[in-house]
Structures are given as C-alpha cells and as structure tokens.
C-alpha cells in the first residue's frame, strides 16, 4: 500500500514537472509549482519525514508561490521566447540522466534497513537522544543540539538572504510606499472590498498565528520547530497584507522593526553559544546552562528555536514587503 502511494505521488510529480516545462503562461507555471510542492509534501509524509513535509507545505506552496506571483505582478506574465536549441539540450539532459541512473544501480534498495546511511551516526541519535537531549522529536534534537552549528549557519544564511533582498530592492522605497500610494490616490487594495474574504481572513489570522506559536513551542514533542513556526507566523502577516494592503500591514509592523527583530533572532542564537562558552562549556553546549544537563538542553533548545523562529518570521515578512512595495512603483 505504502509503495502504491509512493509510486503514484512520484508519477504525478513527474507529470507536473513536464507540464511546467511545456506551458508558457507564467501564472499557470507558478500554480503548477505550488501543486508540485504540495505533492512533494505529501510524498515526504509518506516517507516519514513529517518535519520536512511541514516545512515544504508552508514554504513551497505558501511563501514561494506568493513571492513568484508578486514578481510576475511587477514584470511580465507571459514567456515570449521559444526554447533555445531544444534538441541539443535534450541530448545533454538524457546523457546526464543516463549516467546518474547508471550510478543508482549499486545503490541500496529503497527502504533497505541495512543501507550504510542507517549505520553511521543515526543509531546513536535514535538511541541516545532522549537521555542526552531529552526531546521526543529526534529531528528537533539533532537540528538544535547535536548539529546546532549547522543550524546557526543556516539561520545566518537566511538573515543574509533577507538583507540582500532588502539591499537590492531598497529599504527607503519600501518605507515610502504609503506616501506614494496616497499621492496616487489609492486608499485600499482591491481585495479589501470583498466582504466575505475580509471576514473569513479576519477569523483565520488569529488561528494561524496561534497555530504558529503551537508549532514553535511544541517542536520538542511533535513535528515542528522554529523554521516552520517562523514561516507560518509570516504567512499570517502575508494574509493580512494581501487583504488590507501593504500600507496597513506596515503600520502593524514596520520594515525597520522587522529588521531589528531579524537581527535579534540571530543574536539570540549566537548569544546562547557565547553564554555557554562563558559558563565553561563548548560553543552551543547547552548542558552547562543549568545544573541539570537535561534542563540545560531544554532551555538551550527553547532559546535557539526562538531565535530561529523570530529570524525566519521577520526575514520572510521583510522579503514579502520588499516585493509588494514594487507594485506601486511602476504606475
């Protein structure tokens, strides 16, 4: 049964990818890529990667689609050029694919418990994580404790990407968006006029934010954590912006505040590392934070997940603000 679901989802993924290649209306392509992400998320659930599925569903179908849509909103909605040298490209792609398929021939079968990947560090994580870290969700304990360095690096990458987007698109233009709109005589976006949408979204936003908080603080015990919570919290704000306009959203939280929050998140993460150093442990060794190592781990994970969550949330909203502030610019 599991295998049938797996094969069906994979086949659908292949078909969606082919459709993305064939269609030249960018709007349709973006919708298809949203569907593709959702299929991916389902596939990840069927392969036991619930945390990953969670992230893919929130990021791929939510944030990425919204960003792509705001880009075509500010540029062009139609692909105008025909594929260049398709036969040559097909040849290159088939040759590369054939080599890669040849490479899979001596790979262990799918789901094989004796595969080398399952005999390196993974058994230790599975057996010892509850005694050493104390979190039921092993993905969380690896993410924030065993491999805390990686996660710090990734948080910094997200922070840097956010800074780059803001640097490329311009901070000041973003802040003056409201003035520009008022000068052009636009008071509210079109969507705000739909009564049903407005009421439904008003009811939904608190629930989304509450759910994000649940995901943030329940990450130790179930699927979830800072990354997912940050993205879900951000999607609540994006919902609000889509409905009531960028100007209103920026009055709730200004781009400047967001940039401070983002920096604060990274600082929290790094600060925990420095604190553990000062308390006599290694960098990001949470055991020394409290007299009881398990309590120390708990506190450390709580703090760094909070740092990750706030950084991801504020960077995602900041990127979205930066993209939507382009809309009024060209009119």
């Amino acid at each position: 049964m599991e295998l049938i679901i797996d094969i069906t989802l994979l086949t659908f993924l292949g078909l969606t990818a082919l459709a993305i290649n064939r269609i030249d209306k960018l709007f349709c392509i973006i919708m298809l890529s949203g569907i593709y992400s959702l299929l991916c998320a389902s596939l990840f659930v069927s392969m036991d990667a619930v945390d990953v599925a969670f992230t893919e569903a929130a990021v791929g179908t939510g944030i990425a689609t919204v960003l792509l849509l705001s880009t075509i909103g500010a540029t062009d909605t139609q692909q105008r050029s025909a594929p260049q040298r398709p036969l040559f490209a097909l040849l290159v792609v088939c040759a590369t694919g054939a080599i890669l398929v040849y490479g899979t021939m001596d790979m262990p079968a799918f789901g094989d418990p004796d595969a080398p990947i399952h005999h390196h560090v993974a058994p230790r994580y599975l057996e010892m994580s509850q005694q050493e870290v104390g979190s039921d969700n092993i993905v969380t304990s690896i993410l924030s404790s065993y491999r805390g360095f990686d996660t710090l690096g990734e948080t910094v990458v997200i922070f840097t990407a956010g800074l780059s987007v803001v640097g490329l698109i311009g901070f000041r233009g973003m802040q003056k968006f409201g003035d520009r709109q008022r000068a052009a005589g636009i008071t509210q976006d079109d969507m705000g006029k739909h009564l049903v949408l407005r009421i439904v979204i008003k009811m939904f936003i608190p629930l989304i934010l509450l759910f994000a908080l649940y995901v943030q603080f329940h990450g130790d015990f179930g699927p979830g954590g800072g990354f997912q919570a940050g993205v879900i919290f951000a999607s609540g704000f994006i919902f609000y912006t889509l409905m009531f306009g960028l100007d209103a959203a920026m009055r709730v939280v200004s781009p400047r505040t967001l940039s401070y929050i983002a920096a604060l998140g990274v600082l929290t993460y790094g600060g925990v590392g420095i604190t553990t150093l000062l308390m006599g442990g290694n960098f990001l060794d949470y055991n020394v934070l409290r007299p009881d190592p398990l309590q120390g781990q708990h506190l450390g994970i709580f703090l760094i997940e909070l740092g990750v969550g706030t950084t991801v949330f504020s960077i995602m909203v900041l990127i979205f603000f930066a993209f939507s502030s382009r809309k009024g610019l060209r009119q």
Partner: peptide, 22 residues
C-alpha cells in the same frame, strides 16, 4: 526512519526559498 537527512533537508528548504527570493 533515519532523522539525519530530514534535518539537512528541513533547513535546506528554508534556505532555498530565501535564495530564490534573492
């Protein structure tokens, strides 16, 4: 199932969307 690849990919997804945004 092996949790280690899950961790790697989880962060890669979020980093992926951030770089796509750039």
């Amino acid at each position: 199932s092996n949790p280690l690849p899950h961790v790697l990919i989880l962060t890669a997804i979020v980093v992926g969307v951030a770089t796509t945004a750039v």
